[in-house]
């Protein structure tokens, strides 16, 4: 029955609904540029990862699927970096030539299992204009977020399209070039809180949002990582330490 084109389209649509439902409870991931690099931020289980010297990953989805995609990305980047050089490892190539076709294929092979995962990659360049924010969806679709010459260096992963839009809207209003890490952590947390709102909740005012921080955060553990632009090591990835996160909750 699947041989009939209409059935196939129907099966794909059903599969899409199923995956969206599975992803609907995922904790959002926020990526925002700051004065020294790019911050990745989320709350909950570990889902911020180092991929290569200048590339990091945040994800929503099933841990098993995230793990498979993460491993594939690390293997590809590492072999490229070993055989050629670290400068030849590019996020664009990784996503377009390797991950996207594999995810699209898995999604459309309706007798096999799709990847229940939505990935947000960030790559740090020599200047903010060279930074890259790139999202790969479960069906292999790629959303490349232009940083607009470094003026709007942010991207989010959210469980639903509406939350993603609300988060981006918030960041668009609040983002200023040249903020330090502490200020950007604040911004990322507020944006994450907006991503957590239920579908029919109104977006609260800024000061209200800050007041409700601890209650909205619940028992969630904050995790954050940065890609530093001018670290004097080749590896730019660094997990943000507990001492740097402490002021967020204290306020």
């Amino acid at each position: 029955m699947i041989e009939e084109p209409y059935r196939w389209v129907e099966a794909i649509a059903t599969r899409r609904d199923y995956i969206e439902m599975q992803l609907a409870t995922g904790s959002p991931v926020v990526a925002v540029g700051y004065v020294d690099g790019i911050l990745l931020f989320t709350v909950g289980q570990q889902k911020l990862f180092e991929i290569y010297d200048r590339i990091a990953l945040g994800a929503i989805g099933h841990p098993g699927d995230i793990e498979r995609l993460r491993m594939a990305a690390i293997e590809l980047a590492s072999t490229e970096g070993f055989t050629r050089s670290a400068a030849d490892v590019s996020l664009r190539r990784l996503a377009y030539y390797s991950l996207s076709p594999v995810m699209k294929n898995a999604f459309e092979q309706i007798y096999g299992a799709p990847f229940l995962a939505r990935l947000l990659f960030v790559e740090i360049g020599a200047t903010p204009a060279d930074d890259l924010f790139l999202e790969v969806d479960y069906d292999g679709a790629i959303h490349l977020r232009s940083t607009n010459e470094g003026n709007r260096p942010f991207a989010v992963l959210a469980a639903t399209k509406k939350s993603a839009e609300q988060m981006i809207e918030f960041l668009r209003k609040q983002f200023r070039v040249g903020k330090n890490l502490a200020e950007t952590l604040d911004l990322a947390l507020d944006s994450w809180l907006i991503g957590q709102l239920k579908a029919d909740d109104a977006v609260p005012a800024d000061d209200e949002l800050r007041r409700q921080r601890s209650e909205r955060l619940g028992n969630g553990t904050i995790s954050a990582a940065v890609l530093e632009r001018h670290a004097n090591m080749a590896v730019r990835y660094r997990a943000v330490g507990a001492s740097e996160l402490a002021p967020l909750i204290a306020k």
Partner: peptide
């Protein structure tokens, strides 16, 4: 040295 350098990083990245 090259293999070693990449091995250590590969371990850290994959095994966290």
């Amino acid at each position: 040295a090259r293999v070693l350098e990449h091995s250590f990083q590969f371990f850290r990245r994959t095994q966290l």
